[in-house]
Design a protein around this nucleic acid. Structure first.
Lengths: 185, 185
DNA sequence: ACTAGTCGAGACCGATGGTACCGTCAAGAT
DNA sequence: ATCTTGACGGTACCATCGGTCTCGACTAGT
């Protein structure tokens, strides 16, 4: 077994693929393998050297972007922290491009097991962040259901599209959940 | 302009197509046009005489089945009615076959605008039923957010698969939502 | 120099959603 | 009774998509 020989993988290629995928998602264009490879100036085989399936590519592209938003600075109260986090999340997720992206992610995850695994990991990470905020103020309360209520409303509204996902909705929901958690503690 | 001539449409064909689609969904097999047409002993063209796209077929098939569950008999209190309805909904939706069906529905809706329209109509109908239960006891409260919390948790958990959707979860959620509505009224 | 392994590019494959066309069949119009 | 209209089952066909295979070019370690 040799250590390693041959040409090394090009990180620039990986970055270009992810950038192409995010661009297509943001523009609402159909995210096909050919489109990604073409826009990234990359061979399709190169994509499969880095990811096991198309869904995995798309999900990693979006996960990378989504992780950036996570205001965890404390405002001095459970209510304040919760409102800040949920409102910021709703505001970001409610933009048309972002909502379209999230819908695309679910669409991929429902058809590709690799993508489903990445989506599960991504959502687990987001729930964990919210859970940490709650735990900071109410360490002994069972927050699983409350956390699912927050992200449930978010995803449900984005997928169905019957109600708005914006700052106001986030604040209202945060206040409701905070009161619910207070009552349960 | 003549009134109408020619052979009439065969409702048996429509029923056979819907039955084939539901069967495939329930069995977890890939729901392709060819599979539907083959199992229903029907030409593909006949499917397109009744529906505009594949997604619309699948959604109508599932909508038909889902509408059947709707216990609206009153138990004597908001808490009781809510618990009965939500628990029954969670129990039904949490079965593996049904959950797979719901995931399939979303998958279709995300790729087909006709299917999306049917899904929007279907979910609106379900929300309306829950809304009516709440309105019976608290006619003046704004229940939109509470309703979305219930169905949000349901869909979110089914799509991500990180937590169970069963009778116990439904009861816990119903109790929480009932308390929240009481506090808001 | 040699070798192994990545690179972009494109041909290729199987499956899928959807359309076109066929001969057949049923029912209202004449 | 015959004609006309349009749905029927079946099948060939098309474009597109995810994914695989192959190719010559390139590059870094042996």
């Amino acid at each position: 077994m040799r250590a390693h020989t041959g040409r090394r993988r090009n990180d620039a290629a990986k970055a270009a693929i992810l950038a192409a995928a995010t661009d297509l998602l943001a523009e609402g264009q159909p995210v096909t393998l050919g489109a990604i490879a073409g826009r990234a100036q990359v061979g399709k085989q190169t994509i499969y050297r880095w990811w096991p399936s198309k869904g995995a590519v798309v999900l990693e592209a979006m996960t990378e972007r989504a992780r950036s938003l996570a205001p965890t600075a404390s405002t001095g109260s459970l209510e304040g922290d919760l409102e800040a986090f949920v409102a910021a999340t709703f505001t970001a997720a409610g933009t048309p491009e972002y909502a379209a992206t999230l819908r695309g992610i679910v669409s991929e995850a429902l058809r590709d097991e690799h993508a489903a695994a990445v989506l599960a990991e991504f959502t687990a990470d987001r729930r964990e962040q919210l859970y940490l905020i709650i735990e900071r103020w109410l360490p002994d309360v069972d927050a699983d259901l409350a956390v699912d209520q927050v992200y449930g409303v978010l995803w449900y509204r984005i997928l169905i599209g019957h109600a708005t996902v914006d700052d106001a909705a986030g604040r209202q929901l945060a206040a409701t959940i905070a009161a619910q958690l207070r009552a349960a503690s």
